[in-house]
């Protein structure tokens, strides 16, 4: 998927994570701020890369600000940011075309 515009998802509240994504300059660039970075930094980055790979995002700048989110929350926020950045929301895609909805669901499944 080609990242067409800047987008974000999530919040800076406890147990959540804020994810920003924008068009890249030829590769993936991921930055991370987390209160648990020393212990879980690698695991967080691994999960972010997995979701991006399953959503076929190869060229983007991604900023992750973690507030102690569980992995299921992290994966949800990255997926949401990607879907917003490709120019359509999941809900509108799904309402318009069932195949797209399934693709969105599949994207989440594979990301897990």
């Amino acid at each position: 998927m080609e990242i067409l515009k800047n987008a974000s998802a999530g919040t800076l509240e406890s147990s959540d994570v804020y994810v920003e994504i924008e068009p890249g300059t030829g590769a993936l660039e991921i930055s991370l701020e987390s209160v648990v970075e020393n212990q879980f930094g690698e695991a967080i980055l691994k999960a972010v890369r997995e979701v991006l790979r399953e959503c076929q995002v190869q060229n983007a700048v991604v900023r992750v600000v973690d507030r102690g989110a569980l992995e299921c929350v992290l994966r949800a926020r990255v997926e949401t940011a990607v879907l917003r950045a490709i120019g359509e929301t999941a809900s509108l895609r799904t309402a318009a075309r069932t195949e797209d909805a399934q693709a969105v669901v599949d994207c989440g499944k594979e990301a897990g």
Partner: peptide
């Protein structure tokens, strides 16, 4: 936030 909530709830159901 409908899109974000839908994905978050789906993941919560899947992993928790």
């Amino acid at each position: 936030e409908k899109d974000a909530a839908r994905i978050l709830v789906r993941n919560t159901m899947r992993y928790m």
